[in-house]
Structures are given as C-alpha cells and as structure tokens.
Amino acid sequence: MYYAGIDAGSNTIKTVILGEEGIASYHVIKTGLGGEEQAARCLEEACAKARIGREEIACIYCTGYGREYLNFPQGRKSEIICHGVGVHWILPEVRTIVDIGGQDSKGIRLNERGEVENFNMNDKCAAGTGRFLETMATALQVPLEEFGACALRATEPVRVSSTCTVFAETEVISHIARGKKRDEILLGVCQSIVDRIAAMVRSIGVKPPVAMTGGVAKNPAVVKLMGDRLGLPLLLPPEPQITGALGAALMARQDILSRQNSQPALSG
C-alpha cells in the first residue's frame, strides 16, 4: 500500500510517496501560480517515479500554505507538525528543528516521540526567509545553488542590516556599486538571515541535537553560521526540503493504520 504527502509551500511543492519499505519516491516542483493543478502534477510525477498509479495511493495528507485549497487530500496538518514527524522518522534523536522555508522560518522543539512541544515562527517579514535569499541571489547574479558555497569562500562578511528586507536590498545593491567583493556580500546576506531568526529559534528553548530543514538548509553558509550561533553542529536530513511532505505521508499512513486498529508505526 502507498501513502502520499504533499507540502504545498510558497516557493515549491514537494510530494513524497511512502511505500511499505520506506520512501518510494519524491518530487519537487516550483509552485508557480500554484493551485490544485500544480499540486496534482507534482503528485503524478512522484507516482511516475515510483512506478505506481495514483489509484494505488491509499491516503493523501497535505501540508504547507496550499493545504487548505487542495481538494484531494484526506487530511490536512500544519507544516510544523509534519516537519516534526518527518524529521523524527529520519533522525529520531533530533529534539530541535530549524526550518527555513520560502516564506517563513520556524523553530520547532520535539519530545522523544516526535511530538511538537513548542514552536515559534518569524513575524510577517521576509527578512530571514528563503525568499530573501532568492531576491539577493538575483541581485548578485549568483545561482541559488551556489550561493552558500561562494559565501563560504569569504572570511569577513559585509554588514547587511537585518530588520528590513527592503533596506537590506538597497544596501546590497549599493555594496555592489561600491565594489565590495561579491562573496563577502553573500556571506553578509547569510549572516543577516541568521541574525534575524536566531533569537526566534532560541526562544523555544533549544535542545540538542538540532536539525535544519527547508530549502535554505541547502545553503551550507547559513547552516554553518546558524550552527555557530547556536553553539551546536546542525544535522541535515539527506533531503532537507522534503521533510514536511514526508511527515504528511507518514500521517497519512498513520491515519489508515489507526483505522485498521493497528499499532502506531511511526518510528522506523
């Protein structure tokens, strides 16, 4: 039997198909104009990768911003709960998650069963999110995938203010104009994200080990700087972007299993 989890985020849609043996496939696409259609396409691609038909999926759970607008899922859960479940399945020892997504960042504390004990999110500001990183990548003409690696080549970050994205953008542009080294600006941008959210993350009472998830976890500079700030090395799931979708798929499976009156089989 197969289960699917869809994380319809602001930047990307992620789908995970879970089989009896574990993750059967996953797929990530740009949200674009989003909507039902895009999510359905993501699900189909994931099914194709897993070489199964959609009818073989017993249950679909949905999370992320788009969860309320999709008609096909049988269950909807917040991405905080889903990240917790997803990370707990991959890295059961983890007690704290730092998730930096496209539109918001979160700190999540888990108990030993992978249940959320405490959480916090950034306020309504794009500073300290993946969106900010993306805008800066465009301004600095660096592919997003290379952002972190380039930043780590710099030793001294250029100072980029972190309370306002609009400010920070003008600032970065004028740093370019003033001939600052690109890599130093990149490192400054990463530093400003960490500055913006470190206190928010610590407000939940960080317990080690800590994992980082979300698209920004693919940026090694942010991961390193956040680890330095928390004074702990950060663990990374192999595919940090899909833990929310994975969590949703696990909850879909849990849903069916509990209906069949089985024991919960969430860890493992």
Binding site: S161, T163, F167, A168, S174, R196
Partner: peptide
C-alpha cells in the same frame, strides 16, 4: 534616516551613507 539608538541591526550603512 531610519535606524535605532542601540540595536545595530536596524542600521543600513550603505543606503544611509548614500
């Protein structure tokens, strides 16, 4: 100029200079 008296995170050096 928009900034803050004690929190340096609110100060945007480059645009303020310009």
């Amino acid at each position: 100029i928009e900034s803050d008296m004690a929190d340096p995170r609110a100060y945007a050096e480059a645009p303020t200079r310009v």
